[in-house]
Simulated assay, not measured.
Amino acid sequence: MVVRELHSIEEFGAVFRLFDRIWRPQPGGAPITVEMMRALSHAGNYVAGAYLGGRLVGASVGFLAAPAGRSLHSHITGAATGGGIGFALKLHQRAWALDRGLETITWTYDPLVRRNAHFNLAKLGARPEEYLPCFYGSMDDAINAGDESDRVLAVWRLRESHVLAAARREPAPGRVPPGAVPGLRDGGGRPLPGRTDAPAVLVAVPEDIETMRAEDPRAAREWRLAVRDVLGGLLRDGARVTGFYDRSCYIVERPR
């Protein structure tokens, strides 16, 4: 696999078509345009593609963010499934940022999507630091339609020890703090709230929220509101997400 920066209109057109196949947006609802990629790249921001056998299989677009000279915001990353494409893109993005003296990369993701949470926390070592209700307003692409666009802000502190270990592909520790209690658990496909007053709280998310949106939108709505209330409430009160356990739940710890 080859990951490299992109600069030409033809390359941006290929990214646009790749993203169109992934998100299948409504007309006029593309996540980013060819013209915007051109402008961002020309202004010194991050636009990169991953190629396998000469074929574009993944891409990522980001822009320099506040605080100036210290952070990159990764706006959108899309990849074909499997093959470590997303991981390769993030490592390239990290190297790009470090070469420019940046300290952090941020991005948003849907906290209900298990595979994204596992990838971001366990594979990369990023940490959700802010809960953002309905961040993008109404979205009608094939992935998000019918749900509110709650996101969490993931912060990737590029030189922290656990991030360095993740970049070396070392497995993340699977430790759950002693005395952790279930603040939200999966009860046969429905969210069941529990305690949130302990020093460590486990916040479950559904097994497959994307399928649930299509097949049981009422249950998907219950999960959205429950995670917003429990995880969002904990983060708002100053608790920190420290990991993602068993590919199913956030580990949230209160400051001691």
Rank of each mutant, 00 (worst) to 15 (best):
Y51I: 03
A122M: 11
E207G: 14
D141F: 13
R240G: 05
T106A: 04
G82I: 08
A142N: 07
H73L: 09
D99M: 05
H162Y: 03
A88L: 09
E10V: 10
D20M: 10
V3T: 09
A239N: 08
Q93A: 07
R195K: 03
A165V: 04
G82A: 11
R236W: 10
G238P: 08
G194K: 01
R169P: 07
D197E: 14
E35M: 03
R17V: 15
R240M: 09
H162S: 05
R21A: 15
A30M: 14
L64R: 04
R21G: 12
S60R: 00
I105K: 02
I143E: 10
G194H: 07
S149E: 03
G238S: 10
A14S: 13
L121Y: 06
G101Y: 04
A204V: 14
A50I: 02
G83M: 13
D147I: 06
C249F: 11
A117V: 02
H42A: 15
D140Y: 06
V113M: 08
A117F: 03
V15D: 04
N120S: 00
K123E: 01
A198Y: 06
I143W: 12
V230A: 05
F135H: 14
F63S: 00
G179F: 04
P193V: 02
A95H: 14
A180N: 11
A80E: 15
A50P: 00
V203K: 11
E207Y: 09
R254A: 14
V57Y: 06
A204W: 10
D147N: 14
I143T: 14
V47N: 00
D140C: 07
R218G: 13
A50Y: 01
F135M: 05
G58S: 01
D141H: 13
Q26M: 14
L91V: 14
S248A: 15
G69A: 01
L56S: 00
H92A: 13
A145G: 13
S8W: 03
Q93S: 00
R55W: 01
R114C: 06
L234P: 10
G86L: 02
